[in-house]
Nucleic acid binder design. Structure first.
Length: 577
DNA sequence: TTAGGGTTAG
């Protein structure tokens, strides 16, 4: 029969193969829904979509770009094979809806469905809680996959993540007929993340062959347990250091608030190795430690290297701008977002509104708010709190009423913002009303900060006895320095010595070095002409080597942030002019 | 298998 095949067939087939190859290449190269949708139509027109190679490649490309489109395609397929299932299961396992992956997997268990294979299980296990994971583990045996290395690695990972099940993970490890370097690394990472660093180190020492990830896993594990010296020692000894090794170190130091060492390593990272993550780690570290000038400095360096910031970078930078009142740089970020067509999600919008408001430009803040289509509660909170902070108490309340007309639900921050607004505008009656409303109608239990705010509202109105009663009725709360401070300030202002002493006691316990407390108490005694007490307080202050700290502030001029202290205005002005 | 992740509340 073979002799009857026409001679021209190989050439014809080569041609077709080459054309098929081109289609597949094209499908692989597409990175936008629009392009893939056009290719999809063409494949349908040419009836090529029935070819499983093409439809599979199309689904694969779509699954990373537009999952709902990929799902549509899958649902239209009357006879999906295991590959088609695996593509979607893998894609869903990476989303916040892993339940979809499990639903698809359960379809595969039906008699007339394609059988799950060794590519299916790792992604199913990734989507599982440990309870479901146990059932999936049992199902492996039915398909003869209990010895597969990839599947077992996923099992170990699943049990390790459940924490209390790490013994199950070790059982899987012990029973594996073959292990690879990933198996060992998964165990090391799992043990280390559970705080079992000694056991992780034993595995690291015992493993037959290490790769750079093995070193990275253990370094990270040491940092997570605060074992900085051991992490550093391992880093210095590591034969190969990749970008993750360096970033793990930067992150380790930053997460333990050791920014000097983190920055030192960041600066020493080989040129060309620093990536967006390296920058985000160091920016985030500075941001958490209130090193806002440094945030802007690093951001500047990043732009110089033409590394594109992502939304995480931009949010941290906007937050730094808010804290430094750096309006020009904040505006630059806003323009950048517009120019690159970056989607303004809730977090970015909130940060943007806050930046404009904190830089004193409430109009622009409101403009961003008005142009936000879908207003998340954090977006509302940002506007309400900033209106309140700027003394626009009534306007803050108006926005709150508008909010109540939408289907967005106020949260505890909304009420804190409302109470702050009442506090800044002296709205005592309204304060009482909303304080009551939050628990009565919205089922939000007031926290120490809410009580603190309410106490301050009452104190500012001179209602010290009511404030004290509120504190005493909620003695279980841990009131902050600010709350006791508010009571002390008010007592001091009104010359109420008894109340001043009542507030000073817990205040000094909370922060024995709080100079304001000594100053307020001393002034209070002076006003009451209790000179001996007043002198005693000042003496105590000196004995403890304390001085009253000068207040400080900052402004931005021509994109440069200047900080100045009370009493140094002339120096600062010279510097600016 | 290994690094990271944001906003609003003084």
């Amino acid at each position: 029969m073979s002799s009857t095949v026409p001679c021209a067939a190989p050439a014809f087939s080569d041609q077709r193969r080459s054309r098929s190859h081109q289609w597949l290449l094209l499908l692989e190269l597409c990175c936008e829904t629009k392009e893939l949708s056009q290719l999809h139509s063409t494949l349908v027109k040419l009836s090529l979509i029935r070819n499983p190679h093409f439809s599979a490649r199309l689904s694969l490309s779509l699954s990373t770009i537009d999952l709902s489109y990929a799902r549509q395609l899958f649902d239209q397929n009357p006879d999906p094979n295991a590959f088609a299932y695996n593509i979607l299961i893998k894609a869903y396992s990476k989303t916040h809806r892993p339940i979809e992956a499990l639903t698809l997997f359960s379809h595969m268990l039906d008699e007339d469905s394609p059988k799950p294979n060794k590519m299916t299980f790792p992604f199913v296990l990734k989507s599982c809680s440990v309870e479901t994971g146990r059932q999936v583990h049992a199902a492996l045996f039915k398909y003869g996959l209990e010895t597969d290395v990839y599947v077992n690695n996923a099992l170990i990972s699943m049990y390790m993540k459940a924490g209390s099940c790490f013994r199950n993970a070790m059982k899987v490890f012990d029973r594996m007929p073959q292990r690879d370097v990933v198996t060992w690394n998964t165990v090391i990472a799992g043990l280390a993340s559970l705080g079992l660093v000694k056991e992780a180190r034993d595995m690291f020492d015992a493993m037959p062959e290490r790769n750079v990830a093995s070193w990275n896993c253990l370094i990270d594990g040491y940092f997570k347990q605060g074992l900085i010296e051991l992490a550093r020692e391992l880093f210095d000894r590591a034969p190969v250091k990749d970008v993750i090794t360096w970033n793990t170190m930067v992150n380790g130091y930053a997460s333990l608030d050791r920014m000097e060492e983190g920055r030192d390593l960041f600066d020493r990272m080989p040129m060309g190795l620093k990536d967006l993550t390296s920058f985000n780690l160091v920016i985030d570290g500075y941001s958490r430690n209130e090193g806002f000038e440094k945030v802007l400095e690093i951001f500047h360096e990043m732009r110089g290297l033409e590394i594109c910031p992502d939304r995480f970078t931009l949010v941290s930078v906007l937050s730094a701008c808010s804290n430094l009142s750096a309006l020009e740089q904040g505006k630059w970020v806003h323009l950048y977002v517009k120019r690159l067509n970056i989607k303004l999600d809730a977090v970015l919008t909130t940060a943007l509104i806050d930046m404009y408001a904190k830089c004193g430009n409430m109009e622009r803040a409101l403009d961003v708010f008005v142009h936000t289509e879908k207003k998340d509660i954090s977006v509302w909170n940002s506007v309400i709190s900033n209106l309140g902070l700027h003394g626009y108490g009534k306007e803050a309340l108006e926005f709150f009423f508008q909010l109540l007309e939408t289907d967005v639900c106020p949260d505890e921050i909304t009420f804190l913002s409302i109470l702050t607004a009442c506090r800044h505008s002296g709205l005592v009656e309204e304060g009482r009303m909303y304080f009551d409303l939050m628990s009565r109608k919205y089922d939000i239990t007031p926290k120490a900060k809410h009580y603190g705010c309410m106490v301050d509202i009452l104190c500012r109105a001179g209602l010290l006895d009511e404030a004290k009663a509120l504190i005493e009725a909620h003695s279980g709360e841990e009131f902050s320095v600010a709350t006791w401070g508010a009571l002390l300030d008010a007592a001091s202002r009104l010359g109420n010595v008894e109340m001043g002493e009542y507030a000073a006691k817990p205040l000094l316990e909370l922060d024995p070095k709080d100079t304001r407390c000594y100053v307020a108490l001393s002034n209070l005694y002076s006003r009451g002409k209790e000179w001996d007490e007043s002198a005693e307080v000042r003496k105590q202050m000196r004995r403890r080597g304390m001085e009253k700290l000068p207040g400080c502030s900052s402004i931005e001029v021509n994109g440069v942030v200047h900080e100045f202290q009370v009493g140094s205005a002339f120096n600062t002005l010279d510097e600016i002019v």
